[in-house]
Amino acid sequence: MYYIEALVKTEEKNKFTIENIEKPKLEEKEVLVKVSHCGICGSDLHAANHDKGYEFVPKPIVLGHEISGTVIDVADKRDLDLLKNNVVIVPAKYCGECQQCLSGEFNICNNISGVGLHFDGGMAEYIKVLPEQLVNIPSSLSLEIAALAEPLSVAMHAVKRMKGDIKGKDVLVQGCGIIGLFTAIIAENSGANVTISGLERDEEHRLSKAKLFSIETEIVEASNKNMFHYIFECSGSSAALETAFNRIHKGGALIMVALYKDSINIPANIMVRGEIDIISSYSSLRVDIEDSINLLNTQENKFEELIDIYSIENGDLAFQHARHQKVLKPIIRL
Rank of each mutant, 00 (worst) to 15 (best):
E66I: 06
F303H: 03
F213V: 05
T298F: 11
G116S: 03
S139P: 04
N86H: 12
I332P: 00
I127G: 01
Q133F: 09
R286P: 04
V62E: 08
F182G: 00
D170M: 03
S223W: 09
C38D: 08
N85L: 13
Q133C: 08
E203Y: 15
D202K: 05
V87M: 02
I179E: 05
S43G: 02
L26Y: 05
F106W: 09
Q320H: 14
G168W: 04
Q133N: 14
M271Y: 01
V327Q: 03
G177K: 10
G180I: 09
D120F: 02
L212K: 12
D51F: 07
E290H: 00
C41L: 11
D165G: 09
N107M: 07
L254N: 11
P58N: 10
L317H: 07
E204K: 15
D81Y: 15
R286N: 12
I18V: 11
V71N: 01
I278Q: 06
Y310K: 00
R286S: 09
S214E: 14
E55K: 10
K326P: 02
G191T: 05
C38S: 11
G164A: 06
K25H: 13
K169P: 09
I215D: 05
S139V: 12
S36R: 00
H50L: 12
Y94L: 03
E200V: 14
L26F: 07
E66W: 06
E216I: 08
F106Y: 14
P267L: 01
D165L: 14
P131C: 07
C109W: 06
S281Y: 00
R273L: 13
I185R: 05
E105P: 08
I219C: 04
C109E: 03
G64M: 07
H324P: 01
K225V: 11
G69W: 00
D120N: 14
N193Y: 04
E221T: 12
E150Q: 06
L7P: 05
A239T: 15
E144C: 04
Q100D: 12
A6H: 04
V272G: 06
Q299S: 12
S43N: 01
N314L: 10
E30M: 10
A192K: 02
I332F: 02
E144V: 10
C41K: 07
A268P: 02
N110S: 14
E30H: 05
E66F: 09
S284T: 09
N294T: 11
E19P: 04
